[in-house]
């Protein structure tokens, strides 16, 4: 029987990514990022004027480990768009540089207002 705190966490994660178009699981908050990689993704999203919801994984160990299990991805931050895992800092930055990220948001009907 799976440890129930893990079951709750994956339910929380599913709810979070279902009820928000763009979700960033990060260390810290957009205003006070606690890790350079998380801050870099917040910067990319802000540059594109993307409205997003964020989850501070430092608030709970279950979340910090649960999100890695959920996506089978070993690091934080993690970006989700319309319930799809897009990637961590490296991939999001690379997609931003190639314009792929803007295309992704447009194709998913998400408002982009580059500053």
């Amino acid at each position: 029987m799976e440890d129930n705190s893990m079951v709750d966490v994956s339910e929380n994660i599913k709810n979070e990514i279902k009820s928000n178009d763009v979700v960033l699981f990060m260390k810290g908050t957009p205003v006070f990022p606690m890790c350079g990689f998380s801050a870099a993704v917040v910067q990319v999203l802000s540059d594109l004027g993307i409205k997003f919801s964020s989850v501070n994984v430092l608030d709970s160990d279950e979340m910090r480990e649960g999100i890695k299990k959920f996506s089978n991805w070993p690091t934080i931050p993690q970006l989700y768009v319309k319930e799809e895992f897009i990637g961590g800092c490296d991939i999001v930055k690379e997609m931003h540089e190639t314009g792929e990220l803007m295309e992704l948001f447009n194709s998913r009907g998400i408002d982009v207002k580059p500053s």
Binding site: K68, N72, T75, F85, G87, G88, D90, I91, E94, M95
Partner: peptide, 25 residues
Amino acid sequence: KIEQHKMVYDSLNGKMGNELHALML
């Protein structure tokens, strides 16, 4: 890209995010 990066992370069998804190890939 995700599959490619996962291949690299898998090769580190659990060290990514533990012994190895940051790998810009």
